[in-house]
Amino acid sequence: MITAALYFAFACFGLGLLICMWRLLVGPDSADRILALDTMVINVIALLVLYGILEGTAMYFEAALLVAMVGFVSTVAYCRFVLRGDIIE
């Protein structure tokens, strides 16, 4: 039963990833693209955690933590670049 729930969650988060990819490519302005990119990072984290549960190993949880840290820093850097024109002051 847990396997079916995991596959359903994979499908849902995969669909969410595709929808965010569409918003990233078609978004009318840069704020929509930044938000889509941040949401894609969250979906990738969820997919990594789900795959770690499916495989029963902790390695994917550590990878999810690394993706979360890199995703946060990249979102902040991209926002600062859009707002100020530079990343490092």
Rank of each mutant, 00 (worst) to 15 (best):
I53Q: 07
A36K: 06
T39G: 07
L54W: 11
R80M: 10
L18F: 10
G52L: 02
I34N: 10
C12I: 13
S74F: 04
L54P: 03
I34V: 15
I42R: 05
G27C: 07
Y60F: 14
L25H: 07
A68T: 13
L48C: 05
E62F: 03
I34D: 07
D32N: 12
G16I: 07
N43M: 07
G27L: 05
V67W: 03
I2N: 11
I53V: 14
V82D: 06
I2C: 06
I45L: 00
D29E: 13
M69E: 10
L17M: 13
M59C: 08
S30C: 08
A36Y: 03
A64H: 02
L37R: 10
V73S: 08
Y78C: 14
D29M: 10
R23M: 12
I53H: 03
C79Y: 08
I2F: 09
F72V: 15
A4K: 00
D86Y: 05
C20A: 11
F10R: 03
V76A: 06
E55G: 00
L15S: 11
C20Q: 11
A58E: 14
F13E: 02
I42E: 12
A64F: 04
E89C: 06
A36S: 14
D29V: 12
F10W: 01
D38H: 12
V41Q: 04
G14F: 01
L83C: 07
V49L: 06
L65P: 04
A64W: 05
G16D: 04
F81M: 14
L37G: 13
M21A: 12
G14K: 00
L66I: 15
A58Y: 10
A36Q: 08
L17Q: 05
E55R: 00
A63N: 10
I45E: 02
G85Y: 05
G16H: 00
A4S: 13
A11V: 03
S74T: 12
T57S: 15
L83Y: 11
I34Y: 01
G85L: 02
M21H: 09
G52Y: 00
V44I: 15
A5C: 08
M59F: 11
N43G: 06
E62L: 13
I53C: 04
F13V: 07
T3Q: 08
D32W: 02
I42M: 14
W22M: 11
L18Y: 04
A4V: 13
Y51Q: 05
I34C: 11
G27A: 07
L48R: 00
L47C: 00
F13S: 01
L50N: 02
V49K: 01
V67P: 01
A11Y: 03
A4Q: 10
F8A: 15
V26T: 11
F8I: 15
E55V: 09
G71N: 05
F61T: 03
V26C: 09
T57M: 08
I34F: 06
G14V: 03
I87V: 13
F8C: 14
F72P: 06
G85C: 01
L83N: 10
L17K: 00
A36D: 02
E89I: 07
